[in-house]
């Protein structure tokens, strides 16, 4: 069972961004203003570490969240979607007039039992280097 899935509209945006920027990554933000939204960067531009959790790979992009935030999110399934809008932050899609957004639902008990394991950002970096 995957933790993060993706909408068709988000796939189109990722395709377009990947043509321009190459491989991409996501980091779920928390906090003020444009927080609580997923941020899209060129892969490696945002440095993950031991304080992050690698949650899943979605349409070829690694998806991270800070460890303490994940504690409150881990029982929910996320769908990476996109909405028209003028977000701020450094997320790459913003000049396109769209913004990535997360839609959430609760995992069922059966789903909870078949979830893929997560790893820390540090473990991810080691695995990615191999």
């Amino acid at each position: 069972m995957e933790r993060v899935s993706i909408s068709d509209k988000a796939i189109e945006v990722i395709d377009e961004l990947r043509d321009r920027f190459g491989e991409l990554m996501f980091h779920q933000s928390g906090g003020c203003c444009d927080g609580s939204s997923p941020m899209c960067f060129e892969k490696g531009d945002f440095k993950v570490g031991g304080g992050d959790v690698w949650m899943d790979q979605v349409y070829g992009c690694d998806f991270f969240m800070s460890k303490d935030q994940f504690e409150y999110w881990k029982h929910t399934h996320l769908t990476l979607d996109v909405t028209p809008g003028r977000g701020s932050s450094f997320s790459l899609e913003i000049p396109m007039g769209v913004r990535f957004i997360i839609r959430s639902r609760l995992f069922t008990m059966e789903e909870m039992e078949s979830l893929k394991p997560v790893m820390t950002g540090e473990e991810y970096l080691e695995a990615d280097a191999k």
């Binding site: 980091h27 779920q28 933000s29 928390g30 906090g31 003020c32 203003c33 444009d34 927080g35 609580s36 939204s37 941020m39 960067f41 531009d45 945002f46 440095k47 800070s66 701020s88 932050s89 450094f90």
Partner: peptide, 13 residues
């Protein structure tokens, strides 16, 4: 900077 955590971390980086 005033904003959210991910961009805050990126700016600190």
């Amino acid at each position: 900077f005033t904003g959210e955590t991910t961009t805050g971390r990126l700016i600190m980086q």
